[in-house]
Nucleic acid binder design. Structure first.
Lengths: 245, 245
DNA sequence: CGCTGCGTTGAGACTACTCAATATCCGTGG
DNA sequence: CCACGGATATTGAGTAGTCTCAACGCAGCG
């Protein structure tokens, strides 16, 4: 049984989406976690084309998923924060079409597929919640695609910070209107699908509007309404019952 | 009980991913379909923010999913062909974060969520297959994001035609190395995240390479290997047991 | 103290965009 | 059978956004 904050965050996130999780179901879910491992930053936790036998729950630190092209270009397709199941989809899918990397040092719990399978057999309702979790990942992905395709780099970046703030606030990983954004500008650029130089200039523009401010790696959202308006941010896609802000 | 080709296509697609679907499971799945409706082209079948009580199986015709920004910009986030479940994700998710539109006249079967729920209760294995189906949609989405973010418009377009050919061949909707691509250039542009004018020019470039040729709405892939190489197309993400080509 | 990684800046090139005009195709009604 | 209208495809010209390459600054760390 794994006992730490990241696990509580995970359960809390699930309850935000469906408040009917019973105590037995919760206990069973918790029981599906086995060991916890520590990973340094910039470590590939899972690699493209791997066949997986377990999924990974992120307890502390930030991680991401990415796809590399043959010439080395890299697109980050998801950012994960504590309480996120990074690759729950590898349970039904098995063969990975992308890699998972740590952006910071991370604590990660293992969830063997065999145990997950047992939980879904005992609790079909939990199986539905797992499915739901991967569907929300997909909804986030759709927003990223809209950002990359139809939003300007400025709007897209604003949208990302809105999204991250809401997701982090769910598990109390914000401090007032601030949170720590640990990605380098090069990593951010790989999320946005722009060059690192351009990412830098977009961030400067964003600071110029006074909507966002930085103190080291800590971002402050100074004007939520203006930022959300600029981004066209509508949090419905995150499927949360009670929306913060 | 709905009896027509699109349903067989759907079952065949499922078997391509997991050959262990039993006859009883198949029968139960087929039984989850109720009425079939005809929709003209350019009709919204499902709208953003709707709360759904049924999902839609596409039997004939092409459809897509899209997200609109407040100023009218539209990003298409998925293309669906006969045999695809267009919005199976609305079963766990209920509230839609995007709309579904027909690109051509379509025949669509309804699958009431209540009936889907019954099937998943009787056959947990089928529930896993439904989950899998939505996960493959997400994998396609990731490729679209990579295309939009890191591939050139030419590579991205080549990738899309590779993907569509493979998906259509699964259900025998190709004719030799050709298939009918019914989207207008403006619709294609909304998939790629470029302007209609630019989409037109990219298509001309693609014709110029002699890898692709058009006769009306029918595309011919003249040089599969060259096209796949240009696109960096690796079909692993489609999760098919036996890959054509 | 001198790496090394990250952020910042400048300059010039290129991709893709917008606006606007023209061409082509196709279905409908005369 | 032809004329017409509407939608779609194509072309041109000028512009905006983003890219690449290269240099420089700064901080942390061995």
């Amino acid at each position: 049984m794994v006992q730490e904050r990241g696990v509580d965050d995970w359960i809390r996130t699930i309850r935000h989406r469906d408040s009917t999780l019973s105590p037995e179901e919760e206990a069973d879910l918790r029981g599906a976690l086995s060991v916890v491992v520590e990973e340094p930053a910039d470590r590939d936790v899972v690699r493209e084309h791997d066949r997986q036998t377990r999924s990974h729950l992120l307890l502390e630190g930030w991680a991401g998923r990415y796809i590399t092209l043959s010439d080395g270009r890299r697109q980050i397709v998801a950012i994960h924060v504590p309480g996120d199941f990074v690759d729950l989809h590898s349970f039904p899918l098995q063969i990975m079409d992308h890699s998972v990397v740590t952006f910071t040092p991370c604590r990660i719990a293992h969830a063997p597929h065999e145990r997950l399978r047992e939980v879904t057999v005992r609790h079909p309702h939990v199986a539905r919640l797992m499915w739901l979790s991967t569907l929300i990942d997909a909804a986030v992905l759709r927003q990223w695609l809209v950002g990359s395709g139809k939003r300007s780099a400025l709007e897209q970046t604003a949208h990302l910070f809105c999204e991250l703030f809401v997701r982090l606030e769910l598990t109390g990983r914000t401090d007032g209107r601030t949170f720590i954004f640990p990605l380098s500008q090069a990593e951010l650029a790989d999320c946005l699908g722009v060059s690192a130089v351009h990412a830098n200039r977009v961030l400067q523009d964003l600071r110029g509007t006074r909507m966002l401010a930085w103190r080291g790696r800590r971002v402050e959202i100074r004007e939520w309404d203006a930022l959300a308006a600029l981004a066209g941010f509508d949090p419905v896609y995150l499927n949360l019952a009670d929306l913060p802000r």
